[in-house]
Write a protein that binds this DNA or RNA. Structure first.
Lengths: 216, 216
DNA sequence: GCCATTACGCTACGGGTCGTAGCGTAAGCG
DNA sequence: CGCTTACGCTACGACCCGTAGCGTAATGGC
């Protein structure tokens, strides 16, 4: 999220930072009420109390505007140390799920991702302002787990990068799919099951389930 | 995919099945060339050699049309028995990835999913024509693995259903995220790594990696 | 204070898409 | 041959798009 205030060493009237905030908030409100397809820039401008031309002076179009509006939702994403890899994963996933449960995130994020398949610049914008911040959590969690001895240190840095990418796609993809496609909440129970599967794998997790059932 | 020919016991001129096929094909072609947002129903009608009004007589709007057009891409989805759970998973994931690698699937599918967050009927349509067919593969694969003894039989049917849903979200979500968000191909190498993670889990998979590195 | 510069609000516009209505024609069934 | 339904075509008001033009507001430099 780049600051939009006028860069130093420039003459002329500075851009209103308040207008930016109002526009992005109005965009999220419009996403909630109308969804992606019915959202119009004219409507957003009216909601924000801003002229339509001001919108076009700052953003190239609907896609870029929505990316920035949704990106702000991910500002709160943190990774508090919960003591174990499993707890860290559960915490991060629950935070991600909480953001994704908001209607403005659901309708906005997926729509721009869909558009980004035909627009490399848009894809890069999404990566920089949203995706990379999520991926950083994976890196942080991995480092902590290695420090705790829960995961072995990486030998091949290239292989390690591939693994991080893989885990990221699995975690983020699973939460998104659960929330948007299956349209069911990624609540604590689900997250526990997911974390167990991620850590121990399908075979071991199933065996554990069978074991529990036998004991009962 | 429901047949759109006139149901038996009806009078009047029957709907042209050829027109349906032409319209859906034209929709996919338009998705490839224009993407979701720039796709217009008027353009699709022209491409299909059909009047615009005919389109509106059959589909309520852009969303429903694209769902049906994309759904046809999933007709080829099968699960040949490859002898082991790992091989079955790899085969199914590679098929799914091949479909998702098409531009018409990328831009179309995610867009309608985004729209479905605000439209329960559309979500149900997607579920019936696309999602359920994928989920059936998970059920089939699980049954085979149990028959082979690779997975324990399920005791609690409710728990089993939850597990199937979980695995489905993980598999489909990971492939979608890899293909659309990370914008990199889910090729054989990636699928192998993913399958290992899914089966053995993060801890075991990492230990194996470290082991391999030590041996080398 | 005055000027250059940039941002803002407002209005107006051509162009495109939407979704529908109306009407004549085509293709089935009894 | 009639009845019924689908189709093609045209036309339409409504909406949204993205931009141009102009007067005004808010800065910094002199």
């Amino acid at each position: 999220m780049q600051t939009r205030t006028t860069p130093a060493g420039r003459t002329g009237r500075p851009r209103s930072a308040a207008a930016d905030a109002a526009i992005l908030a109005a965009t999220r409100a419009a996403l909630v009420e109308l969804g992606w397809s019915r959202l119009t820039l004219g409507d957003v401008a009216t909601r924000a109390g801003v002229a339509k031309t001001t919108l076009y002076r700052r953003w190239a179009g609907k896609n870029e505007l929505v990316v920035d509006a949704v990106a702000e939702l991910f500002d709160e994403l943190r990774l508090p140390d919960r003591g174990s890899l499993a707890a860290d994963i559960e915490g991060a996933v629950l935070q991600f799920a909480a953001i994704l449960s908001r209607p403005e995130a659901k309708s906005g994020l997926m729509a721009v991702v869909a558009e980004s398949t035909r627009d490399a610049a848009l894809r890069e914008r999404i990566r920089a302002s949203i995706v990379d911040r999520q991926k950083r959590l994976v890196l942080e969690g991995r480092a902590r787990a290695q420090a705790r001895g829960e995961l072995p240190p990486e030998n091949d840095p290239e292989e390690a990068a591939r693994t991080v990418d893989l885990i990221f796609d699995v975690v983020a993809g699973a939460v998104v799919h659960r929330t948007l496609v299956s349209a069911e909440p990624a609540d604590e129970e689900w997250v526990r099951g997911f974390t167990r599967l991620l850590l121990r794998g399908l075979v071991d997790a199933s065996a554990q389930e069978a074991q529990k059932a036998l004991e009962a």
